[in-house]
């Protein structure tokens, strides 16, 4: 085994969930018990997170709409994976948020998040 790149790219929880569902649907008749265990457990976890209701379109429109806030890629990913609902959570995910965002902007951001990432609860 050779590791050519331990972090080729990052994945959103939604992408992971989609691939795992694909694997679960093409059920294999023999062996692969480890795969079955980990897909089952990971899906269980993901289906309790907000990514269950997210869509690819929702995420891309979210990315487009928050361009104005000048967030880094990692921050966007963190928001997509664990969408904040309180201004306090924004503080956690965005470094120096007090300096980079005004109170109004934080509220706008929360509204955009609620619209695209936390749909039909």
């Amino acid at each position: 085994m050779e590791v050519s790149n331990p972090c080729y790219s990052v994945l959103t929880n939604l992408e992971v969930m989609e691939s795992l569902r694909g694997i679960k649907d093409t059920k294999k008749k023999y062996g692969l018990r480890n795969l079955a265990t980990i897909t089952y457990e990971t899906l269980q976890f993901l289906e309790e997170t907000p990514c269950k209701n997210q869509t690819r379109e929702g995420i891309s429109s979210f990315i487009n709409e928050v361009k104005a806030f000048k967030l880094t890629k990692t921050e966007c990913l963190a928001i997509v994976n664990d969408p904040p609902t309180l201004p306090l959570h924004i503080q956690l995910l965005i470094e120096d948020s007090e300096e980079r965002l005004t109170e109004d902007q934080v509220n706008q951001l929360l509204a955009i998040i609620a619209k695209h990432l936390i749909t039909n609860e």
Binding site: M1, V3, S19, G31, N34, L35, T37, I38
Partner: peptide, 23 residues
Amino acid sequence: RDEINRKLANKVLLNVGLCIALK
């Protein structure tokens, strides 16, 4: 695909992380 999954799924690869499934 099967062979890779049999080898890696649910295992920790040193300095890489916990392997979930083949993409």
